[in-house]
Amino acid sequence: MRPRSSRDESGRQADGGIAIRVRNLRVNYGEHEVLHNIGFDVKAGETIAILGGSGSGKTTLLRSLVGLERPSGGAIWIRGQDLCCISPREMAELRKKFGISFQGGALFGSMTVGENVALPLREHTRLDDSTIEVLVRLKLEEVGLSGYEDYNPAQLSGGMKKRAAIARALTMDPEILFFDEPSAGLDPIIAAGIDDLILKLKRAFGMTIVVVTHELASAFLIADRMVLVDKGNIIAIGTPEEMKANPQPRVRQFLDRVPDPEVSADEGFLDRLTQNLRL
């Protein structure tokens, strides 16, 4: 347990232009620790890209930031509030200031695109139906999906689903936007369109944006700073220029897209293959 004074101190510091502060964060899945001592800050209005390979723990990190995973140690402050110690009601209030675009879109299949986008407004505001309708059209227009209000999510292509999910994430005019793999599984043209959209949102609304991705080109285009996660550890933090100049071998390997050495060249390879066999 951390001493209360240090939490309060960090909490106050977090108010001064820091939107997200993470310190010594550890997350376990059962016995297995997937994030080890993660720590970084995200300034208000900044776009940060969390980069990492598959299984590096970057999605777990994002899920922890939005309160979907409970850390086994360390702390996360969002807008100065310590996630570990806030009440469910405070968490709900905080989440109203989030917008999250999930990897698969996570649009509600039982609702139309328009109803999906309208849902946060219907649930959290007392706006009348016609105002909500106008706002839904506005948000869909912002992501280039005007006229798709009455479509079912199943009728949309992968890129359109992501756009609709972004429109839903924008509905409550969030202060912090989270994207989980925004361009994964999309063709380069559609992926570039999503990058453009993120840049547009950044310029137009000055939102704090956290993007989890493994797409290097996309990350270098949209990010003010980058966090490179490898095997549950942060191995580098910096601006795109600093990352390009980073000499660490693992950073270079990731940025220069160099594959891991062949497993069969490994000394223990044969032992691993034949272990537990009665030969």
């Binding site: 899920r63 939005v66 309160g67 979907l68 968490m91 709900a92 209030e93 989440r95 109203k96 989030f98 999250i100 999930f102 990897q103 698969g104 996570a106 649009l107 509600f108 299949g109 039982s110 849902l119 946060p120 649930e123 959290h124």
Partner: peptide
Amino acid sequence: EIGSMKVNEEIDALETMAL
């Protein structure tokens, strides 16, 4: 219904929308 919503991250989406 709820199982598919869980698999498609829709339950997570509800939670993060403060629902």
